[in-house]
Structure formats: C-alpha cells, structure tokens
Simulated scan of single mutants.
Amino acid sequence: MTTTTLGGSAVRVTPLALGCAAIGNLYRAVTDEAALATVDAAWDAGVRTFDTAPHYGLGLSERRLGEALRGRPRDSYTVSTKVGRLLVPDTTAGPGDDLADGFAVPATHRRVWDFTADGVRRSLEESLDRLGLDRVDTVLLHDPDRHAEQALREAYPALERLRAEGVVGAVGVGMNQCALPARFLRETDIDVVLLAGRYTLLDQEGLAEVLPEAAARGRGVIIGGVFNSGLLTAPRPGATYDYAPAPRPVLDRALRLREVTARHGVPLRAAALHFPFGHRAVASVLTGARSPDEVRDTVGHLRRPVPDALWDDLRAEGLLGPGAPVPVDPPLEEPS
C-alpha cells in the first residue's frame, strides 16, 4: 500500500489502518491465535498502520498487538496508542468481567482518568512495556471530553515535549465528537485527529469544522467508525448506531442509502469505506477486525471501484450533502 505522512510529522500511515479494539476482546472473546492471525492477515494485505489503547481489554490489545508485530522490522510499520486512562490494579475485584466497559476480559484493573503530564508519561511507559516496543509512532489523547481544560493545559504540552525529544513522532487527539478536536486544531500544534463516527455516509458533522481546519493547517485526519457502530454494514431494526439501537429516522436513512448503492451493484459497506477518502485531509481509514476473514472482506471492498454515478444519485436523493467531496479512485491498488 502507498503511505501518507501525518501533518508535518515524519510518521507515515497506510490508507487502511487496523484498529485493535476487537483483538482486545471487544464485546466477546477472541483467542490469542485468532488475534495473531488477524494481524498477520492485515500485514499480508499491506496494512502497516496499527492503532491500540490501554482501554482496549485492559491492556490485552496492546499485549497481543506487540506479540503479533514481534520480529517484524520496526521501521516497516507504525503504531499508535493513547493516553488519558491509567490502568490501576483492582485488588478488590472478584471473578467479574469488564463487559460493563465493553470488553470480555477479567476485571483485574480499573481505569483512572489522568490527563496530567505525569499521567501521560506513566501511561506511555506502561504501554511500551505491554507492547514490547521501545517507541510508538503516534500518541493520541483518548476521549478527553470531560477533561478538556486539563488535556489542553497539561496533557498536550507533555505530548509536545515527548515529540520534541523524539520519543514519539506524532501527537494528536482521538474522539467521537467534533467541537473539541476542532479546538485542538486551532489552539495546539497537533499532527493528527482520529475522528470516529463523525465523517461517514450517515453523519458528515466533521465536514463543518474539523476537516476544513485540518486541511487548512496541513494536519492529518484518520477516520474511524465508518460503519457507525455497525448500522452501515447491515441496516435493520435493532442495529446499533453510536453504540445504541439506531433511532428510526437514522435507520430509515441507512436503508435508503443501501437502496441506492444496491442499484449500482455496490454493497453499502463498500461505499461507506470509500466515502471518507474523498476529502484531502483524510490520511487513513481505521477499521477493526477480529478475524482474517474480516480483514480480507474490508480489503476487498476497498479495492473494488465505486462508480461516480452512485455518488451523483446519493446527492440527487438528498442523502449526501452538496459540499461533501467524493473519492475518484479506489484507495487501494490492485495487488500486482
């Protein structure tokens, strides 16, 4: 796969990045063997960008990703992890699980929000230990929604120092809202925004401020949540949108989107994957997978052409705003 730099940094990312929450047992357990095979399949497909976080499975995702990458040339891939949640051993925990936070793992630790400078460094050191790496390429402030001022005053300057020291290559923020990432773009020198669920076929809120700000300032944007919690993979009653059952108007819109894409012989899933690449600020699309088959399915959809007429019909039916740019070519080349 080709690569693109993040903002003014030297960190390069592939168009498709593997999100590693699923191999941290998101919602249900994945075996060690399946997790390893998933990362191997992504590697075989040309993916060289991997995203994880301490939050994902109370460190399980980082440990599994590190194991899967062990032995591969370190300069041949990029890893991003996140700070803002420290993992503290829970000595009072019984045999319970972490499913209340979405992960099928034993509740051996509890998450403690910490956007102090010391918390940033501690979190990164612990992540490096779990990953088995001496450095990560990108560090993101993870969901600082309720800690905005501390994240701006304390956590971000700590990341800026780590970048200046060469400890990390790029810094940014990862969120599923637009207002605070836009503020970070205006007030700091971040390299990248990981924007989840806010620039999709269903929700183009990111087009109002985040994407134009990033483009104007030469910053990179990684788009996550392109399926809006699964609704754009199989829209039907009971499907989830933003981690909750989809409201009827949103479900109806997704069903209309599927009708249009089907007329062109394109799965809705494929159109959803392609759409973000139309914007020049988008450097990569991040998708999760828990099996090699899911990786291969995603790669196959990204390699198939999407006709211009599909985007034209979406606009004509009011399903795509007139200001939303659309991709011209498939983001992934056919294998040679």
Rank of each mutant, 00 (worst) to 15 (best):
F103G: 03
D101F: 13
L99W: 01
V88K: 13
P89F: 11
P106L: 00
H55I: 06
A93H: 05
E62V: 02
R72P: 00
H55G: 05
V83M: 05
P106K: 10
G94C: 07
A93R: 13
G96R: 14
D98H: 12
A93Q: 12
L69A: 05
D98N: 14
A107P: 00
G102Y: 07
H55A: 09
D101A: 13
E67H: 06
P106S: 07
Y77K: 15
D75M: 07
T78G: 03
R85D: 03
G84W: 15
E62R: 14
Y56H: 03
D90Q: 13
K82W: 05
V88A: 04
A93M: 15
E67F: 09
P95M: 14
K82M: 03
L86P: 03
T91H: 15
A104P: 05
A107I: 01
A100S: 04
S80P: 06
T91E: 11
R85N: 06
V105P: 12
R63H: 01
E62L: 07
D98F: 15
P95N: 14
S61M: 07
V83I: 03
L58T: 01
D75Q: 15
H55D: 04
G71L: 07
G66M: 02
L60T: 07
R64L: 00
D90Y: 13
G94I: 10
R70I: 01
A107C: 11
V88Y: 03
L60P: 07
D101W: 13
